[in-house]
Design a protein around this nucleic acid. Sequence first.
DNA 1: ATGGTCGGTCCCCGA
Length: 263
Amino acid sequence: MTLTLASWNVNSIKARLPNVLDWLKEKSPDIVCLQEIKTVDDAFPRLEIEDLGYNVETAGQKSYNGVAILSKLPIEEIAHRVLPGNEDEPQARYIEAVIAAETGPVRCASIYLPNGNPAPGPKYEYKLAWMERLKAHAAELLKLEEPVILAGDYNIIPRDDDVHDAAAWAGDALIREESRDAFAAIKWLGYTEAFEQADGRAHQYTFWDYQAGAWPKNNGIRIDHLLLSPKAADRLESVEIDRGPRGKEKASDHTPIVGAFRL
DNA sequence: ATGGTCGGTCCCCGA
């Protein structure tokens, strides 16, 4: 049995609803981690998505940020709606569910990591502090020895091969050495970055800016990632970026990344 | 073509 899990920053679920519904109907992923839903929970278009066979859990806020998990499989538990380490966190950037897969529970998080620009500055400090919290929590999750998939918009360009023109991004919060080191530190705990593991793939992107014709010029960056615990990594069959949604009318500036697992 | 992004909004801010 194959379980498919997608991560997609939709840049407003209300503005993107027709595109999202079309894509869910077309691809029918088992689990979808959404970011930047940009709405409070009560205004999330849950019925339209439930009609397609999904259970829906959200952690939203007004205007900005907001994450959700959609699952065709039963959601056993929402383990967290705020990233542990600061329960007073005002920004909705984390939700973690335990999902009942055929092989047993699979723990999935939808993550919207702070952008961090301009760097240096307080927003960048917030990004690094948030990553420190994520690392501490990710370490705790490893102790459970479960399949864990930490999916989301990490706002991190891991390698120069993940950007059209690395020099043009020098100094940006998404590519700075401290950002990359913080991302690598989470991997070093024992997580596998799914896409990077697939050999020989370079210059495949998940985000293209709305400005300056970035999409037609394929001037993109790879910032949406799936981090896998050992038990999830062992079960990884494939991971692909689906460029389809980025080419549609009224597209998000991100496109989905989809992993397939023997789970 | 002296322009050139979106989305959510207390009309700018965040990306």
